[in-house]
């Protein structure tokens, strides 16, 4: 039984992670590199002169970008393990798990791990002002965990109690509030920060749709093989 989890998660996570890594390198990395020019002080805006919005950016870096690909694959393999655990429990409750239904599970994963935390802790470019890392991580885990429970209640709960509970769990972390910096000190133009957050969330959604579909597909195929 556990080998079915491992095999499906490895295949789904590695393939979705590789595609996501490539998408990130093309769509997100240039924005990050642009922001780093301001983080390091190579560019300064609101100085005496206007600054070009189209500076020369460093190109492909084999070590740096290679590591990014590897870590993206690892991250999405980790997400695949969590997703498949939820999928198998859903299957017990009558949900159909395949490549097509997997898309819906993927969207749910995106909501839990990207959109819910990102609603108050938007994806950050390097160089922004932010609160203490430990408190932000605790808030991030609590928010993602609460969203997971909430989405499960929305999907499998019956009755108003479950649905209202889900709404409370989704809103509570944002009513309490995410850790915020004491003052703003980010040197990066707001245009770059906004583009980065939008791109990170967009690629996150693409990643999770791929991951959900692949996880559903491999879960079904591994099940058919062992049956």
């Amino acid at each position: 039984m556990f080998s079915r989890f491992l095999t499906s998660a490895l295949f789904a996570g590695a393939s979705a992670g590789l595609l996501t890594g490539l998408l990130q390198l093309y769509f997100v990395q240039p924005v990050l590199l642009h922001a780093e020019l301001y983080e390091t002080g190579a560019l300064v805006h609101f100085g005496a002169d206007a600054v070009s919005a189209h500076p020369d950016l460093p190109g492909f870096d084999a070590v740096r970008d290679g590591l990014s690909l590897i870590f993206t694959m690892l991250t999405y393999t980790a997400y695949a393990l969590i997703l498949l655990a939820a999928m198998s429990l859903g299957e017990e409750r009558g949900a159909v798990i395949d490549g097509r239904w997997g898309i819906l599970w993927g969207v749910a994963g995106f909501v839990a791990f990207h959109l819910a935390p990102g609603f108050s802790l938007a994806p950050e470019v390097p160089g922004v002002a932010a609160a203490d890392i430990t408190s932000r991580q605790i808030w991030w885990f609590a928010t993602a965990g609460a969203a997971l429970v909430a989405l499960w209640l929305l999907a499998f709960g019956t009755g108003w109690g479950a649905w209202i509970g889900a709404a409370v769990l989704l809103m509570a972390p944002h009513v309490v509030g995410a850790p915020e910096p004491d003052s703003f000190s980010g040197p990066v133009p707001t245009e770059i920060g906004a583009l980065f957050a939008a791109r990170a969330l967009g690629i996150g959604l693409a990643a999770w749709v791929l991951l959900g579909s692949f996880a559903g597909f491999f879960w079904q195929r591994e099940g058919a093989r062992s049956a």
């Binding site: 990050l32 870590f71 802790l121 470019v125 390097p126 890392i133 991030w140």
Partner: peptide, 15 residues
């Protein structure tokens, strides 16, 4: 350091 860009791009709190 190795995961830096991925952490930012994936929306994890970094730094």
């Amino acid at each position: 350091d190795a995961a830096h860009d991925v952490r930012h791009a994936t929306g994890f709190p970094c730094h």
